[in-house]
Computed example of a mutant assay.
Amino acid sequence: MRLPLLFIRVRPLLVLGAGLLAACSGGAAPDDAATGRKVSRPALPAAFSLPAPGLIAEGLAYDPAGHALYVSTVRGQTIYRLPANGTLRRFSRPADSLSGVFGLAIDTVRGYLWAATGPVPHLARPGAAAPGVALVRYPLAGGPPRRFPVPADGRPHLLGDVLPAPDGTVYATDSRTPVLYRLRPGQLHPEPWLNDSLFYSLQGLALLPGARTLLLADYHRGVLAVELATGRVRALTPPPTDKLRGLDGLCHIGPTTLLATRNGTAPNRLLRVTLDTVAGAVRAATPLSTGPLPDLTLGTVAAGRFYYIGRSGWAEFDEQGRPLPGVAPAPARVGSILLPAR
């Protein structure tokens, strides 16, 4: 989650599994069972802009069943939907009364879009009702959303990213008070499940196969591994030349490969992160070639490409959400690259 500094709270390792479950949905076109050839699917544009300036785009998610990409906005307090071969349109409704919308994720098993939401000074409608910090669930087939608010406990909270697991449990990271939240089926509120001394500024998430181990991006620590059965947390050993600070989003693209967005260092980068599954370490973090990424946030895998928000709009506002003098707001921009080798 890309936020001004005001909002960022400034042993033996786990042996990792051989593959990853999708924190980001999508991927290459499926094979035709009879011919082995790739099945064509409706096309998404390689790049596009949001419909108005100053919205502050933050999260992306892809629904492979509906062939649609979803984009969240913080200042706009809106979720947009871009269907393949279609037009970008508003998905959420004003009646939903969303706060700022941060991370998005698709539960492909149950047909839900999950959104991490919360108020910040940057909201375009500060005088309007801005609900508190919550997970919001939308049925992809249609119908009203359902809110799962984070209970007030006297501490500041802001859910920056969200990830549904195969069993229906939803995990979310808190970027103000470093806590890993968990919402199990049937619960009405996310519970502050895990608070570990290694947590500093939690960001993106990805699950290892079998849904037993959760990877977390931490702005200061790099990549952390959480054993879900015990709550045990370990920091993955970084490469010798890179401490992996400033990571934001995580997406898997192969058995031992992640794509990460990095916006806590200059310049902003997309990284190909290779895991050493035996040693419990990050073997390499390789920058990928892209155009300038002046204001990078999160990304997702969709139809053989990695989509990312390269110009989000955070840089156009100060920490109090006020437009910076002399800076003309521009529409947020989503770009993409072909998936690199896995």
Rank of each mutant, 00 (worst) to 15 (best):
L5Q: 12
V10Q: 13
L13E: 11
L16V: 01
S25W: 01
G26I: 03
G27W: 00
A28Y: 11
A29K: 02
A34D: 12
T35D: 11
R37Y: 03
S40K: 10
S40M: 10
S40F: 11
P42G: 03
P42F: 15
F48I: 03
P53T: 00
G54Q: 08
L55V: 04
L55E: 12
G59E: 02
L60Q: 07
Y62Q: 05
G66W: 10
A68W: 05
Y70K: 06
T73Y: 06
V74Q: 13
V74E: 12
T78D: 07
T78K: 15
Y80I: 02
L82P: 01
R89N: 09
R93T: 14
P94S: 11
S97D: 09
F102E: 05
G103A: 10
I106R: 01
L113W: 04
G118T: 04
P119H: 13
P121D: 12
R125Q: 15
L135R: 08
R137W: 11
A141S: 15
R147I: 08
V150R: 00
A152K: 11
A152R: 14
G154W: 03
P156Y: 05
H157G: 04
G160K: 03
V162N: 06
G168K: 02
T177R: 08
R182Q: 05
R182S: 02
L183M: 01
Q187C: 03
H189A: 11
F199D: 09
F199R: 04
Q203E: 11
L205I: 10
A206Q: 14
L207V: 03
P209T: 11
P209D: 15
G210F: 00
A211M: 04
R212H: 12
T213V: 15
T213C: 09
L214Y: 00
L216Y: 00
L216I: 13
D218W: 03
G222Y: 12
A229D: 00
G231S: 09
R234G: 06
L236S: 11
P238I: 11
P239M: 08
D242F: 10
L250W: 00
P255R: 07
L259Q: 06
N263I: 06
R269I: 02
L270R: 03
L270T: 01
T274V: 15
L275S: 07
V278I: 09
V278K: 14
A279I: 00
R283D: 02
A285T: 02
L288H: 07
G291D: 05
L298S: 15
T300G: 06
V301Q: 00
G304L: 08
F306E: 06
I309G: 06
I309Q: 01
G310H: 05
W314Q: 15
E316M: 12
F317L: 14
G321M: 11
A328W: 08
A330K: 14
A330E: 15
A332F: 08
G335W: 04
G335C: 05
I337P: 03
